[in-house]
Design a protein around this nucleic acid. Structure first.
Length: 327
DNA sequence: TGGACGGCGCACGTTACTTCA
DNA sequence: GGTGAAGTAACGTGCGCCGTC
């Protein structure tokens, strides 16, 4: 005897499977406790997926036979629901506050015709059901192992067949988004619990997180690119402004050479001794430095009358302050 | 103790499929 | 209803990390 246990919220389309869940899917998160009971030998997840593939191709008579013998779906109200901490997910909704279906089905009671039809209409019914071996149970390590094996097994079996792709429901996506906000990576335990909760395969949760990280990175790259473009534009503008200011100053210098010929005293500060000294710019402009260093280009020198006017503080011009003069 | 090896998760690029205008 | 674009689930591959031998 095999029990297919699916914890969590039914997908939007599959929400009709739940008793009383017909009509519009509620935007409010509803975590159900869905259990499928089948009679027969234990079937593996690989077989389930194979059935689904065959059913898609219309080849699986056994699957049809089985669907004619529908599993019983249970919506159970847990007696002692786990808190989100107990579940290991601080971001998981607290089960104590969950709205759950209050209708409880007897395991031994067959579903009504409506319920049967609703149950068998789920596109995820074959793919998403999470099976728990009640004889062995699913411990942490066993769960992780099952995760690995099922993941690899599904990888292997998918290699030959066509690619299965199913759309996640809005609620599933929303829950995954919430999870991603808390942790953008998952450890195996979290992955498995999340898969259980969402009625997905761990591989699907893993892939979803990988793709989500990729999307986040892509978006961040776009944002960064926009930011850098704006920075570049700002710097370009600043460069233009400075170039213009420089040309204005040069123009001013050539149009008013008067300032340059003044024997005015300029204030220069020695950075080492911080003494302000006064000297003549005319001699500094014409005569070379006493210490033999290369004289600066004329354009690099600020006009003498700018000292103390345009420049708020006395600036140090190495070419204007000779050690001999300072001493 | 260091290297070989295998398992695993992740990033990245790609493909295949779905949805929508 | 057909079609192209966009979104995204799923896949393949390479790489790094870690535990084991």
């Amino acid at each position: 005897m095999e029990l297919g246990l699916s914890l969590g919220e039914p997908p939007a389309r599959a929400s009709e499977r739940f008793v009383g869940g017909g009509g519009r899917p509620s935007t409010r998160l509803k975590l159900g406790f869905c259990m499928e009971v089948g009679v027969g030998r234990e079937r593996t997840e690989e077989e389930e997926e194979e059935d689904m593939l065959r059913e898609r191709r219309g080849l699986n008579m056994e699957a049809k036979r089985r669907s004619a013998d529908p599993p019983v779906q249970l919506n159970l109200l847990p007696l002692a629901p786990l808190s989100r901490q107990e579940m290991g997910f601080p971001w998981a909704p607290d089960n104590r506050n969950l709205e759950v279906s209050t209708r409880v089905l007897d395991v031994n009671q067959a579903p009504s015709a409506d319920e049967t039809a609703a149950m068998s209409s789920s596109p995820n019914s074959a793919v998403s059901s999470f099976h728990v071996d009640f004889a062995g149970g699913v411990g942490a390590s066993a769960a992780a192992e099952q995760d690995r094996t099922s993941s690899r097994a599904s990888d292997e079996e998918d290699n030959g067949g066509s690619r299965k792709k199913l759309r996640l429901s809005k609620d599933q996506s929303a829950f995954l988004e919430e999870s991603f906000k808390e942790h953008n990576t998952l450890n195996p335990k979290q992955k498995l619990a999340l898969a259980k909760q969402l009625n997905l395969r761990p591989r699907q949760v893993e892939v979803w997180f990988q793709n989500r990280r990729a999307r986040t990175k892509l978006k961040q790259t776009e944002v960064d690119c926009e930011y850098l473009k704006r920075c570049c534009e700002t710097l370009r503008e600043e460069n233009r402004r400075l170039q213009k200011e420089l040309s204005d100053l040069r123009a001013l210098k050539t149009s008013q050479p008067f300032y340059m010929q003044l024997p005015a005293t300029t204030l220069s500060m020695c950075p080492s001794c911080e003494r302000v000294s006064s000297n003549s710019t005319s001699s500094a402009a014409t005569a070379g430095p006493a210490n033999g260093s290369n004289p600066p280009a004329a354009a690099d020198k600020p006009p003498s009358n700018f000292a103390g006017t345009l420049f708020p503080k006395p600036r140090f011009y190495p070419f204007a302050h000779q050690p001999s003069a300072a001493s």
